[in-house]
Design a protein around this nucleic acid. Structure first.
Length: 598
RNA sequence: GUCUCUGUAGUUCAACGGAUAGAACGAAAGUUUCCUAAACUUUAAAUAAGGGUUCGAUUCCCUUCAGAGAUACCA
């Protein structure tokens, strides 16, 4: 049982004995004492004034005195205004550290047979362009979220819905046919996803030229020109052919998609993300059309004169939503309905989480309603894990205009930076080329992932490619560096033959920094739980940073291996190793590796 | 127009309704005979504006202002 829970129970007793009131434990909130005051945990007594009918100072004093007498782990207390600062005994802290030390996966809960099954969809790329920084935020968030949900005792299935069909693919295909001269990844040496992306950009360039021409020479409005440009018409014809299973179109489609997948696989591996089950929209969209037809027959939807099918959500306070185009082809929403159908017939899913950008908040509001209308019992409870855009200093990234930060390029750059920095600092001496590169890879990816994950997911964030990513301060490498230093200390401790007992004696007298550090380590379990409840990887990131910063200050002020008192030395080694353990587990939740040396 | 989200040091980010709003980068100044200086210490610097709710508001509510997004036969 942790200290906080024990204290909360004692405070409940105190309130009952002193004021005769039974207060639910949820209302007794202990917080970490601010560092400018003496103590470890603080009780704010303002909420209890109503029952004590005394001044805040006096109320705090009474509760403090009760606890000092009745709770063995309390070594003392002080009162500042309405704040009761409690001081926990060294022995209680050591006991807590012993408990943490005995638990290899402290803070994690294993799933059982009866645990809920959570499916998490993330990544969800289009096959017409390579992955960029925005996708990286999605992948890192989704992947980390899966780790966090799993660490909280759920069964997790990571899934990816690949958007391998639709008008955007047709644009790339058409451009390749028209301007490609048979270029392949082999012929040009380009990564497949990049090659396709280049043709997507080419389509847009030629299309824009056509629109401008129509406006200038035929006097059409912008809307008319956009709808009547020959390239766009051709692309739509191609989409109709694709849905009609035209063999030529399908063959081309398959060839080009395979190039893209080869490229994606490489990028995913490098990012360290993976999936348990991949769905393709080319397989799910028909399922969606079927469901829409069903809904049409049941009178849930209606057909317009031109043949398009719509859902009327005005009674729910939303608009009318298109479900099938007038030419009978399906749209985004149709596909998501079909995908949901397939997933729930494949798995007994208890909860569905979609990791998708906040620009689609409305889409998921609608999807939830539509699934509910169609009789999916999970429809109302779907979770849209909505995250903000990654912006450049100049504003939003636009893939069609080529102003994106490419995922592959960025990872290259991070790797190179990490390697250069290591070299400058002389950290690579005595290592093989392979070892050095491995460390540069871990550090470079750590910097990138941490940079993205430390930010509250729902906020837009800014990325400046020129300044790129720091390796100092609140960064992944700072955390990794601290971990590496602890590992070094532990190696040296082992070399010098120090024997670490399973249980530390509770008689060692600790200093304030040591007690606070144990408190911070112990808090990991609370943070993991919290992050699981709130779906918040950034909570983990910010917790680890605080812990590491605290450890660094301790490390600077006190020596570990040069400490003369053996009992204290051993205690500090155990404390350090548990800091490292929690850091490693926490970084693992973020999908970030920690190196033994760097 | 309507709806949603976001406004915190020069910049990038923190802060279950709790104490004097924390960090980092950048700026200025320091610390290496000692376990990895990718570290540590010090200084200057912020809650968009106005109202309300209460013992207490960056946090909750209202108004205004600013930014982003949605409201597409794009995905």
């Amino acid at each position: 049982m942790n200290i906080e829970a024990k204290l909360t129970a004692s405070i409940k007793d105190a309130l009952k004995v002193l004021y005769g009131q039974d207060v639910p434990v949820a209302q007794i909130q202990l917080q970490k004492t601010k560092k400018e005051f003496k103590g470890h945990l603080t009780l704010v007594v303002f909420p209890f004034l109503r029952m004590s009918r005394k001044k805040p100072e006096l109320t705090a004093q009474e509760i403090g005195e009760y606890l000092e007498q009745h709770e063995s782990s309390i070594a003392g207390f002080n009162v500042v205004k309405g704040f009761l600062n409690l001081i926990i005994s060294s022995a209680a802290w050591i006991e807590l550290l012993n408990n943490i030390n005995a638990d290899e996966r402290y803070g994690f809960v294993d799933a059982t047979n009866s645990s809920p099954l959570v499916m998490i969809e993330y990544s969800s790329p289009n096959t017409n362009k390579p992955l960029h920084l925005g996708h990286m935020r999605n992948n890192f968030l989704g992947s980390s979220l899966a780790n966090i949900v799993k660490a909280n005792g759920n069964k997790v299935i990571k899934t990816n819905i690949v958007n391998d069909r639709g008008i955007h693919i047709c644009k790339s295909m058409l451009a390749w046919l028209k301007y490609g001269h048979g270029e392949t990844p082999e012929s040009s040496g380009k990564k497949g996803d990049h090659l396709i992306g280049d043709y997507y950009v080419a389509f847009d360039k030629h299309y824009k030229a056509e629109v401008a021409d129509l406006m200038e020479n035929k006097g059409l409005t912008k809307e008319e020109a956009e709808a009547n440009a020959p390239l766009m018409k051709e692309a739509h014809e191609m989409l109709v052919k694709w849905e009609a299973d035209d063999p030529d179109v399908r063959a081309l489609w398959k060839k080009m998609n395979d190039w893209v997948y080869a490229g994606f696989d490489q990028t995913y591996r490098r990012m360290g993300v993976s999936f348990d089950k991949i769905y393709y929209e080319s397989n799910t969209y028909l399922e969606g059309k079927k469901k829409v037809d069903e809904g049409l027959h049941k009178g849930l939807f209606y057909r317009k004169e031109d043949g398009s099918v719509w859902a009327d959500l005005t009674s729910e306070g939303l608009d009318q939503k298109l479900l099938l185009r007038s030419d009978g082809t399906s749209v985004y929403m149709t596909q998501d309905i079909g995908t949901a159908e397939l997933r729930f017939s494949d798995y007994p899913i208890d909860k569905m989480i979609y990791v998708v950008g906040n620009e689609q908040n409305y889409h998921f509001q609608v999807l939830s309603l539509l699934l509910d209308k169609l009789g999916f019992k999970w429809g109302k409870d779907l979770v849209h894990f909505s995250y903000g855009m990654v912006e450049l200093p100049e504003g939003k990234m636009k893939s069609r205009e080529g102003t994106v930060v490419d995922a592959d390029d960025l990872m290259d750059e991070m790797f190179n930076q990490a390697r250069d920095t290591s070299k400058e600092l002389g950290k690579l001496e005595g290592l093989t080329e392979e070892e050095a590169n491995n460390i540069a890879r871990i550090v470079g990816m750590g910097a990138l992932k941490y940079f993205i994950l430390k930010v509250d997911a729902r906020k837009n964030m800014t990325f400046n490619p020129k300044e790129s990513i720091d390796f100092n301060g609140n960064t992944g490498p700072f955390i990794q560096y601290t971990y590496a230093r602890i590992q070094s200390v532990l190696r040296k401790a082992e070399e010098s033959g120090i024997i670490i007992p399973k249980e530390l004696p509770t008689s060692v007298e600790l200093n304030e920094k040591e007690e606070n550090l144990i408190q911070s380590v112990a808090n990991f379990a609370v943070v993991v739980k919290q992050a699981g409840d709130d779906y918040s990887p950034s909570d983990i990131a910010n917790y680890i940073y605080d812990l590491v910063k605290e450890f660094n200050q301790f490390y600077h002020d006190y020596s570990i291996l040069h400490e003369e008192n053996d009992a204290v030395k051993i205690f500090r080694i155990v404390l350090s190793s548990n800091v490292a353990k929690v850091v490693s587990l926490g970084m693992g939740l973020l999908g970030i590796d920690v190196p033994d040396r760097m």
